[in-house]
């Protein structure tokens, strides 16, 4: 992988704030605007909580790898886990007309990011997210 950073953490929710901090600062490093930095951070956070809850069923000692890098003028995140995979159609997000708790995270990710690809592979699951950086104004 070319320039970027790799985070390795156990599936313990107490590390969520640490990852948020790293993602927000990495997005700022790639010159995303302040609002986009917040959105990207929320999307990655929601993807990470999905892994903790649904792939690892709230076990706190399972491995998660997160790769952050710049790609094609945007921010790419690759999240890898070794837990239970889901069918890709389960990641379509639910209709929001029915007011109820749960199922909001995937909707948020899809609203925020420009690309979301999920691949349940042999022994591992890969989630790839990408968001394009808004074009800079002339002279910037």
């Amino acid at each position: 992988m070319d320039s970027g950073i790799k985070l390795v953490l156990p599936s313990d929710p107490r590390y969520l704030s640490v990852v948020r901090g790293a993602v927000e600062r990495f997005a700022a490093l790639l010159e995303f605007g302040e609002e986009d930095c917040r959105w990207i951070t929320l999307a990655v956070h929601e993807a990470l909580t999905n892994v903790m809850r649904h792939a690892y069923h709230d076990r706190h000692d399972q491995p998660i790898e997160i790769f952050l890098r710049e790609r094609d003028g945007g921010f790419e995140v690759l999240m890898v886990d070794h837990g239970q995979g889901v069918r890709p159609e389960q990641l379509s997000g639910r209709a929001l007309e029915d007011v109820k708790p749960g199922g909001l995270g995937t909707h948020m990710i899809r609203e925020i990011m420009d690309e979301m690809d999920y691949a349940p592979l042999e022994g591992r699951n890969e989630l790839r997210l990408w968001k394009k950086r808004a074009d800079k104004k002339a002279g910037e």
Binding site: L42, T49, V99, K100, P101, L104
Partner: peptide, 16 residues
Amino acid sequence: RYIDSSGVASLVEGLK
């Protein structure tokens, strides 16, 4: 300063 979908879900559960 920050709330995620699990926090929103808790508020929705309280509302309901």
